[in-house]
Amino acid sequence: MQPDKQNASLRITALVSVGKHPGSGRARRAEQDARAVEMAMTLAPEGLEVLHAGDPQADSLRAYAGMGLKRLRVLQQGTNADAVPALSQYLKQQKPDIILTGVRAESGESSGMTPYLLGEALGLPVVTRIAEIVSIDHGEANLLQALPRGQRRALRVPLPFVASVDMAAAAPRQSAFGPASRADLESQDIGMAVMDEVKAAWSEAPARKRPKRLKVVKAKTAADRFKAATAKSSGDGGKVLRDKPASEMAQAVFDLLLEEGVLR
């Protein structure tokens, strides 16, 4: 929201997809895509275009509009069409300065390939998992990239570029019902539908639970195997330390922290 961050001439396109709630499986605004829109709205409220390739009737797209968008452009496509050719054709014409996407979609293949394929198709550099666009000067952007465990890396990239937005980016603003229901979903038929034929051969099912790998004891003798199998599993029942010197108890805590690998 800082005015110095805003850039009047900057043109940003945020690509949005239909999300999926992990609990209910219901369509919603995808969390990372919403962060991309939020980032774009903060940076260039004027030069922002929110773009979706797919079904213009999808209700969950309105949830993006509820963030305060006047319009949302939809490249009309069937559900089995590949979004990338349509998007890259459209973006080749539009030539925005920054293209923002989520890291991975919440529905469909969610391979996370979209930004890379677009980058390859448009010949633009791709930056992964950005948390913030700090500033833009001399045709280059200063970015913060999200690393695991809350760490950040500073990067500098020349415009134009493609960037995928990490969950660590600023949380998206609330989606309000009024603007959402009134926004204009500009549907555009760009006259190309590349069917995703590879995908047609796939079969999709709800995720099965994956067994966690147990600590396998490579035992040389039957007795060792027996011992390993009957050993009391460490999970049940907590250990309680009391009436001991504080240093000893703290050491026990510390050892557990070390064992869990949370200490750096």
């Binding site: 999926k20 979609a105 051969a201 999709e204």
Partner: peptide, 13 residues
């Protein structure tokens, strides 16, 4: 492989 944000399993070649 896992698809849809880890909520589905895709079986493929």
């Amino acid at each position: 492989c896992r698809g849809a944000g880890g909520t589905s399993d895709i079986t493929r070649q």
